[in-house]
Design a protein around this nucleic acid. Structure first.
Lengths: 226, 226
DNA sequence: CGACAGACGATTGTCGACAGTCGCTCGTAT
DNA sequence: ATACGAGCGACTGTCGACAATCGTCTGTCG
């Protein structure tokens, strides 16, 4: 548990912070599958007591990033390629198709503005080669739309799927998609959203998520539904 | 919070029991959407301290049965018909298709035996009109197969999907499927599993889950309309 | 009569201490 | 040597107390 770069947090919602920090550590690869997570150590490292740590671990357990065995502790959990490709990604598509459809009617002009900002941010980070920040913007983009769909279960499930997918690609399938392409994809998605054409949006969403699985489809110069 | 039928538990894994009891109370409808869940009250009712209750609430929150707002408590969450039909059920199909496929090669003869026992149990409870027990057997059937698939994420996600679906049908869409038909469906599914024909199994799984949504489709004349 | 700051009550969030459980080590008998 | 079981650490599980926060009630002032 040494040197994870975890830092103490001031007085504020502890549990959330602990969960966030651990999630970061896992999805970024600082914590690898099989690593044990000792409550006392984590608590000490984060400058809190075990209570918030325990709750964070429970949460991560439900997010599938951690497994815990009664009286025997928790450890970081990995994902198999099969599960990602045949379960997590298809589920993510189901979720996002539904959420984007619902969100179409509730997205405000200001939301669209925010989304555009995120896309711009993506382009910038893509140019700068900041993969981590790109992924963050990517997540915020999707999370905003799903939040606006006002489907609580969708959002809740998305939050448990997305970290696993991210952790998987980060660890086991190093970035194969061209950052600039990801940015363009989002721009396209946003453009389609602006048209309000439901069928087109659903198509774009599905393709957009699929690109993670088929890296070869359009590295540069491809003509796929863009 | 009065009279939920909650009972004190002896010394054993508390958190799990609390979660189980609350989940039962919610899926069975004793707790309705919007009901507030006060940690202190629940703890008192269950004869434990707040710690296990809190963890159980976190777990139920991740299972989508409960929402909680910081410093303002938790309440039971409902599901919309849209979400069940367009999100939860499709996801369940994705999960189970994958899990059943994986499980085909790992199911032992003894597992098949157990499954047969469960199907027999279903027939019995169907005759007795014990809807609750029927649903329990149903769940155990699926859970066993998914467990044998040895896909942890599948099992974990299934456990978070299934209670919501159950709660929904219990509360908002009273049993429209003929109990005897459910039992026969499982018998059929089990028979197909025994043949080991992967494609056939996947078909059977998908149809089997779909029946919840389309009550009207019954192959041969069982018109015991609930 | 209505807006607003402060106090209050109800509940959640956090903490430190203690109890329970698991795996392993080490001595002992066979 | 091997098998067995008591003892020991290292943790997790649970508890009761205390701190922080939110919504509301209330009294005051404009």
């Amino acid at each position: 548990m040494a040197g994870l770069g975890l830092r103490r947090v001031p007085t504020q919602s502890r549990r959330e912070h602990v969960a966030e920090i651990l999630r970061d550590a896992i999805t970024s690869g600082r914590l690898a599958p099989g690593d044990r997570l000792i409550e006392l150590d984590l608590a000490a490292e984060l400058g809190t007591s075990r209570a918030p740590v325990r709750e964070a671990l429970r949460q991560l357990e439900q997010e599938g990033l951690v497994v815990s065995y009664p009286y025997r502790g928790s450890e970081v959990l990995g994902v198999s390629q099969d599960e990602v490709e045949q379960v997590l990604v298809p589920i993510r598509i189901t979720l996002e198709r539904f959420a984007f459809k619902k969100a179409l009617s509730t997205l405000t002009p200001q939301d669209l503005e925010t989304l555009q900002t995120l896309v711009d941010e993506m382009e910038e980070t893509a140019r700068a080669g900041a993969a981590e920040e790109l992924a963050d913007a990517d997540i915020r983009f999707h999370e905003l739309v799903i939040t606006r769909s006002e489907q609580r279960h969708c959002l809740q499930m998305w939050k448990t799927i997305q970290p696993r997918v991210r952790a998987y690609f980060r660890r086991d399938a190093p970035a194969h998609s061209d950052p600039a392409y990801v940015a363009r994809q989002h721009q396209h998605l946003l453009d389609v959203i602006r048209t309000g054409d439901e069928a087109a949006v659903l198509d774009a969403v599905e393709q957009h998520i699929h690109i993670h699985l088929e890296p070869a489809t359009e590295p540069e110069g491809g003509e796929h539904g863009e």
